[in-house]
């Protein structure tokens, strides 16, 4: 195991990997954003990921989400856990196949260092942000708002208000002829993941 660990992280900064191995990150929702975030955080060597989502993998998910044809019909959290284990056994994954509510929020995610909001509906995003920030005003929360469409890289940015960060263009909704596409969704997801890794290093130092 130690040998595999050394080989896997051979070209990574050992100090960083050490901090990330000692970190716990929660991902609320494992669709287009969450599944991509989980892939990047596992590759970085995050010690523990807590993932929650009640959905099942559908064929149309494959245009944006990190699942495969032979996983259609499986619960997303179970399929994602399998995929992450195939990348690295050094990230422990705790899957919760359930919808996040104000009552189970702290039960599922109470132990995380950072929570990442990767939900689909604006209503759900609001519920999560409001309740989480009231429960844990000092913990970093990284959300996303405005991810649909193609191109327009220059509109994607990060807004920080205290411990809350929001990544996205803040305008593009999925509606009337505007569709989410893999590249742009993954850009936003990886900006969330990249920010998370940076904040963990700041905390760890």
């Amino acid at each position: 195991m130690t040998e595999l660990f050394n080989e896997l992280f051979a070209n990574q900064n050992p100090e960083y990997v050490k901090i990330w191995q000692n970190s716990v990150v929660g991902i609320a929702g494992v669709g287009g954003l969450g599944s991509n975030i989980a892939f990047s955080l596992t590759r970085a060597g995050i010690g523990k990921l807590i993932i929650a989502d009640p959905d099942i993998v559908s064929t149309s998910n494959l245009t944006r989400q990190q699942y495969f044809l032979n996983q259609v019909g499986l619960p997303k959290v179970a399929a994602l856990k399998d995929n992450l284990l195939n990348i690295s056994p050094f990230t422990m994954v705790n899957p919760y196949p359930q919808k996040i509510t104000p009552t189970n929020l702290s039960l599922i995610f109470g132990k995380v260092d950072i929570l990442i909001e990767a939900l689909d509906e604006a209503e759900e995003k609001q519920m999560l942000i409001e309740n989480w920030q009231q429960l844990y005003p000092d913990k970093y929360l990284i959300g996303a708002s405005g991810i649909a469409g193609v191109g327009k890289n220059e509109l994607i940015h990060i807004e920080q208000i205290g411990t809350l960060f929001l990544v996205g263009d803040g305008i593009t909704e999925i509606e009337n002829g505007v569709y989410p596409t893999a590249a742009r969704v993954a850009v936003v997801a990886n900006m969330q993941a990249n920010l998370c890794l940076e904040l963990l290093l700041q905390k760890g130092n």
Binding site: G29, G31, G32, L33, G34, A118, L119, D120, E121, A122, K125, Q126, I129, G143, A144, S145, G146, I147, A148, E159, I161, L166, G168, G170, I171, T172, E173, I174, P180, V185
Partner: peptide, 9 residues
């Protein structure tokens, strides 16, 4: 600070 939340994930 007033932030708009937009669906999509």
């Amino acid at each position: 600070k007033v932030i708009h939340l937009i669906s999509g994930g």
